[in-house]
Design a protein around this nucleic acid. Structure first.
Length: 546
RNA sequence: GCGCCCGUAGCUCAGAGGAUAGAGCGCUGGCCUGCGGAGCCAGAGGACGCAGGUUCAAAUCCUGCCGGGCGUACCA
């Protein structure tokens, strides 16, 4: 049995024996200080009032009931806390279970038969992906993997805004570059895209199309739009490839229009009575429902706004039958999220269907200080180039090692120059050292045939027991990381597990130690297994050699 | 002005009501005749932005300030 479950079921029995009603959730903590035991509970504080006893009294009564049970070495009341010290055999049982489960250890059942869609990146196809998109790419990909670990079927989806004014500006900017390549002084349009990446494409088009498009007319617009989108998509695919992210579904804004979904959504909104007309435009009455302003859904020229299309898109997601939709978006989308969420609520979509993972932006710290990215101004670091510089593992890990809602300063120089000193390698190195140990064990003929069957009794060193306790946490970490949209918890966990392993390995010899050898190999097999699983979820490699 | 996010070690950040606040980097000093030194051991470094409040217990929850980021478009 998992350790927390062990303490919970014991406490449940003790509470029943004392005729105190058992709460649904019995909190179990892992004390920071060893003298407080392996597990502890503050339940006495919570039930004191109801039980009409002071927390210390209640804690003592519980401890007295539990003292002497075989799974605990001791159960002590300290203040109002009840502290449990586990017997090594209870920990050995945990390790045995980990080894028996193998790669399935940590997987959950909650998502069985359920499907979650994770929408992320969804960058406009107006240029390559930048370090700004990297956080989102890593975050979304890892969230999807976390949910997959909990048994959900995951769909990774990219929403492609291939319509609207930005695409118009992009096409015209490309046309300008094409004209420039032909020797004409054509300026980049107002609000257009100045990035170097359009120059090369413009030159190429000048070579293949010659003087075919001397003026910016409908014909040029159509040609350059199509060309621009496909070129940008190619670049985006390259960037995603570099970071190792694959999408299952690409949804184009244009398709939503063509399938009549925007018009349908509009009808539903009208029918709901949540919209009104003013100044020739159609508005969503946001202020009636707690928003800070009303929102235009259809402009006075009859075209739907981005928000309108987004609402239609999310209705379509619902129609597709997902049990949960997770949108990963930057902090600039807060208002947009509220608006879409409100529209869905007004249309009767259940509250829990759509959840947003909102993240703050990445600022890049480089030679010229801290800089904001801007695709439009052509000032950005391309994702592919960053990955080439620091490697996929480091790039991905750095982006999820902080909680999404915290601002992240990416110190490019540090990631590159001191890459040997960074936490990714610390974790990977732990995995590698164990892999190497197993190679040595095999050479020496000391590798047991059946690790889960090994006698674990020799594992009595506090460091060994601490490692097992840490292994026990893994499934909970996966669960929290997924539910709270907090992949950084997994990073922290892996660093903590590695931080227990390295000192242990530096001080304890494994091979040639008689009965202790197979037991220690079994322990380290468990550590390697969990490190490997954790890294896999992060999309970071778990090397056998470095 | 209003809304959301963030103020914790020199730097980058964990800590989501519990017991003496942690990690990595950087800094100081040690450890390579055994399984990988990308490692280990030790040390210096903190009024948790400020002020109130709730609680047996607050870095954590509430309120108000002060800083910083983002938003506040008939842009996407």
């Amino acid at each position: 049995m998992r350790l927390e479950a062990l303490a919970r079921s014991a406490l449940r029995e003790a509470l029943q024996a004392l005729e105190i009603s058992v709460p649904d959730d019995i909190p179990i903590e892992r004390p920071a200080r060893p003298e407080h035991g392996d597990l502890s509970t503050r339940i006495a504080f919570l039930l004191a009032r109801e039980a009409r006893r002071s927390p210390p009294e209640l804690a003592s009564a519980l401890a007295a009931r539990l003292e002497g049970r075989p799974e605990f070495r001791s159960v002590q009341a300290v203040g109002g806390f009840v502290n449990f010290a586990l017997r090594p055999s209870a920990l050995h049982d945990v390790l045995r279970a980990v080894l028996a489960e193998g790669v399935a250890y940590g997987r959950g059942e909650e998502g069985r038969g359920k499907t979650v869609q994770v929408e992320f990146v969804s960058s406009n196809p107006t240029g390559p992906l930048t370090i700004g998109h990297l956080r989102q790419a890593a975050l979304g990909d890892v969230l999807a993997s976390l949910y997959a670990e909990l048994g959900w079927t995951c769909v990774r989806e990219y929403y492609l805004n291939d319509e609207g004014r930005q695409m118009e500006l992009l096409a015209q900017s490309l046309w300008a570059r094409y004209r420039q390549a032909l020797g004409v002084q054509e300026p980049i349009p107002e609000g257009g895209y100045h990035g170097e990446y359009l120059v090369a494409i413009g030159e190429e088009l000048a070579r293949s199309w010659g003087e075919a498009y001397p003026i910016w007319d409908e014909r040029a617009r159509a040609a350059f739009r199509t060309e621009a989108v496909s070129r940008m998509m190619a670049m985006i695919h390259e960037d995603l490839e570099a970071i190792g992210v694959r999408f299952d579904v690409w949804t184009r804004e244009g398709d939503l229009h063509r399938r009549g979904l925007v018009a349908q959504a509009l009808e539903r909104l009208r029918a709901s009575g949540a919209v009104y007309e003013k100044d020739g435009a159609l508005w969503l009455a946001g202020t009636h429902h707690g928003l800070s302003r009303d929102v235009v859904l259809v402009r006075s020229d009859g075209t739907p706004t981005y928000t309108m299309v987004d609402i239609a898109y999310h209705l379509e997601k619902h129609a597709r039958g997902f049990d949960l939709v997770v949108d990963v978006q930057g902090a600039d989308h807060v208002d947009e999220q509220r608006q879409v969420a409100l529209a869905l609520r007004l249309l009767g979509i259940p509250e829990g269907f759509l959840r947003y993972c909102l993240h703050q932006f990445v600022t890049l710290k480089g030679e010229e200080g801290i800089q904001r990215m801007s695709t439009r101004a052509g000032r950005f670091l391309r994702l592919k180039d960053l990955v080439a510089e620091v490697g996929r593992d480091v790039a991905r890990y750095f982006m999820v090692m902080r909680k999404p809602e915290s601002h992240l300063v990416f110190d490019f120089a540090l990631a590159r120059d001191t890459s040997m000193e960074n936490p990714v390698y610390y974790v990977q190195y732990a995995h590698t050292r164990i892999a190497s140990l197993f190679r040595e064990a095999a050479k020496a003929g000391e590798l047991p045939d059946d690790l889960p069957a090994v006698d674990l009794a020799p594992l009595t060193d506090p460091r060994e027991l601490a490692l097992i306790k840490e292994l026990d946490r893994f499934p909970d970490v996966v669960k929290s990381a997924a539910h709270e949209f907090a992949p950084h918890l997994l990073c922290e966990y892996l660093e903590s597990l590695s931080g227990l392993f390295h000192p242990y390995y530096a001080h304890v010899r494994v091979l040639g130690q008689g009965r202790a050898t197979p037991a220690r190999l079994a322990l380290l097999a468990g550590v390697k297994l969990v490190l490997g699983r954790g890294l896999a979820i992060l999309g970071v490699s778990a090397p056998e050699e470095m």
